[in-house]
Write a protein that binds this DNA or RNA. Structure first.
Lengths: 202, 202
DNA sequence: CAGCGATGTTACCGATCAGTAACGTACGGT
DNA sequence: ACCGTACGTTACTGATCGGTAACATCGCTG
């Protein structure tokens, strides 16, 4: 059960020095996403960020709290993405969903993708008092809420049913990405979403 | 980032004594599924199994190998389940898929469920030389193959598309289960599957 | 120049991790 | 009665984990 070890992270370049806290946070975000939360230790983070453990603990109270921050960042980033994709089609929920799935397929198929960081965290974080859990739960609840709202706005026959189905398609794509490097089932998500919406008369 | 610790596992009951290896393996399977692979250490396993570390390493070459065995077991168990669900509807692929989704929703909604152990492993296992990775990959590939085969058998207009979509629905349900304790989006999976199949004229 | 906040350095803590060596014991078949 | 197999016990290794104490240094501002 080996792990990401400090040495093999781009040889700890000391470069670029804007505010240590930010460097640490950026590095942590990337490592957590790429390698998983449990697989990345504090040593690996600070080394990759070109600093040391003390500077880390001067900026963050604990690793768990850093993880929670990472998840909050991912959450915010996700909704920025969502809103950006949806904006051009304001008032046209059907097109909005299509745009979302098109963008989702595109994003999830890129070779840097490791699915959804928040979904992955849902697997990795088992302690239910972990500060990150609440972030994950509220994030996924909001996704469900929005999909249902969109389904409702497009006057689907059964909005809750359609909304949930759309969510399952999207989440399934994230999960599948982890085992299918490219050309996986995700590629079918857009068409599937269209089919579902058609069937719901939307 | 706390973890399952040896003490809080049912106080290490020494009960039931058939073949230590089997006891260890059963215990490990349950713990891995319930708490995750990385969260469960060897000490926790052997203590919960009422034995000790030496007995473990006399039966298993390493933790990674135990994990791979666990995943192989989950894989076999899954296909037994699948075949059992599908058997009564031999020759009727449409009904087979419906039965699969009905059973899937049912299983995934039970309160002991923590989604799919193999999918969870896909998140937790980041090293690509881990002996468990291959198991996960071949498992998910087989799911995709079977769904596509079923879609083809039911003469769907686009079997590969439908097969992938069905897979996404199922995987999405597994993932959603981890954040929605009950009554989550999974409950819509069966109807969604029906809708998709209808739309494909199958 | 003085002083202060932000950072780096080194060395440490106790806990836990996967894994091993050496030895003791209980039981079952012959 | 003997012996081998299976199992338990204790103690240990070296690495890594998250987290901390004490002290040195840098650069900016007054």
């Amino acid at each position: 059960m080996s792990v990401v070890r400090p040495e093999d992270l781009s040889l700890c370049e000391p470069a670029a020095k804007p505010r240590v806290r930010d460097r640490i946070f950026e590095t942590a975000c990337e490592l957590f996403y790429r390698h998983g939360i449990r697989a990345v230790g504090i040593d690996a983070i600070v080394c990759a960020a070109g600093t040391n453990k003390m500077s880390f603990y001067r900026s963050f109270p604990s690793k768990d709290e850093l993880v929670a921050d990472y998840l909050r960042y991912k959450d915010a980033h996700f909704w920025t993405w969502w809103d950006g994709v949806v904006a051009p089609f304001d008032g046209a929920p059907r097109q909005q969903v299509e745009a979302l799935f098109a963008a989702h397929v595109n994003k999830t198929c890129s070779k840097e993708s490791r699915g959804c960081g928040l979904a992955n965290a849902a697997v990795e974080i088992v302690e239910d008092d972990h500060p990150g859990r609440a972030v994950v739960v509220s994030h996924k609840s909001e996704i469900r809420r929005r999909f249902r709202a969109l389904a409702s706005a497009m006057q689907a026959r059964d909005p809750e049913q359609l909304g949930d189905a759309l969510m399952l398609l999207m989440e399934g794509g994230y999960l599948a990405r982890l085992t299918f490097p490219k050309g996986g089932p995700v590629t079918s998500a857009l068409v599937a979403a269209r089919t579902l919406m058609d069937a719901h008369g939307a």
